[in-house]
């Protein structure tokens, strides 16, 4: 591909940071334009030729990536002010200079690399899975209606990319809110017929500190989600479920499911 010479260049401004909690600086780059290129291909060029637009040598910019087809969520960053995946961010559709920043709602490891651990910790906290392990064969679970499965599939598209977390004004390093993505997973697994057998445990988890009630209804998450997941509908549905659960916990004779 290096042989393709269009004579055009792509201008980039990248917010850089060498160490965690270190100081930040902006570096400008100019890379050769190739038809159909995405932000990652521009970053790959800088990796090979780490020279700024002013001609000064610098260190290669570091970022995370894996699947390159908007499924894994690893390459999320803030591009021209909007958090999104850099693999599906096409240069042709972006205004230049293209400004790349890390998603600062997470701890920045280096340059555009962030540590999304808090999302995975939240998924553990809310038990975002269907427990089926036992000491004996538990047999088949209840059947799931096909229409319900199709609807639930939309919720299952979440790739823990962190874009909704970056968009949410109530998620930050200084706030405890777990954010929209893990909450929507509670709705997904509470919908699953086998998962629903533990729905009270998941509801209890999001009724804990930093949970569901910390949502401030700015609805940025649903506007930002690259997968079009109805996050705010999930949150509102969980609000109703927890309202019922709250009364059950207090007035009910026990805290079991149903």
């Amino acid at each position: 591909m290096e042989t393709v010479n269009t004579g055009r260049t792509v201008k980039l401004e990248i917010v850089r940071q060498d160490t965690e909690n270190g100081s930040t600086r902006v570096e400008k780059f100019e890379v050769p334009y190739r038809p159909g290129m995405n932000v990652i291909s521009a970053l790959m060029h800088i990796q090979k030729y780490p020279v700024t637009a002013e001609g000064q040598n610098t260190t290669p910019v570091s970022w995370d990536m894996s699947c390159l087809e908007e499924v894994c969520g690893a390459c999320s960053m803030v591009i021209n002010g909007r958090p999104q995946q850099s693999c599906s961010a096409l240069v042709d559709k972006l205004t230049q200079p293209i400004r790349l920043e890390p998603m600062k709602t997470f701890p920045v490891v280096r340059d555009l690399q962030v540590d999304r651990s808090r999302m995975f910790n939240a998924l553990k906290k809310v038990k975002a899975w269907v427990p089926i392990d036992g000491t004996y064969d538990l047999g088949e679970g209840p059947r799931m209606p096909e229409r319900k499965r199709q609807w639930a599939y939309e919720l299952s598209k979440c790739m823990t990319c962190g874009v909704c977390m970056e968009a949410c004004p109530n998620v930050s390093e200084s706030a405890s809110f777990m954010g929209p993505a893990p909450l929507s997973q509670v709705r997904l697994f509470n919908t699953h017929p086998t998962g629903a057998m533990n729905k009270d445990e998941r509801l209890a988890a999001i009724m804990g500190d930093g949970g569901l009630a910390n949502c401030g209804n700015s609805q940025n998450c649903v506007a930002a989600c690259p997968k079009g997941i109805p996050l705010t509908t999930s949150i509102a549905a969980l609000n109703r479920a927890t309202t019922v659960q709250m009364f059950k916990n207090f007035f009910g004779s026990d805290h079991m499911v149903d």
């Binding site: 109530n170 706030a175 609805q219």
Partner: peptide, 20 residues
């Protein structure tokens, strides 16, 4: 505890969030 971001996300609901 909020980090307002109406500049980046200037949707109606986000403005309501900030104004609230």
């Amino acid at each position: 505890t909020a980090t307002n971001n109406v500049k980046r996300f200037s949707t109606f609901r986000n403005w309501m969030f900030a104004l609230q």
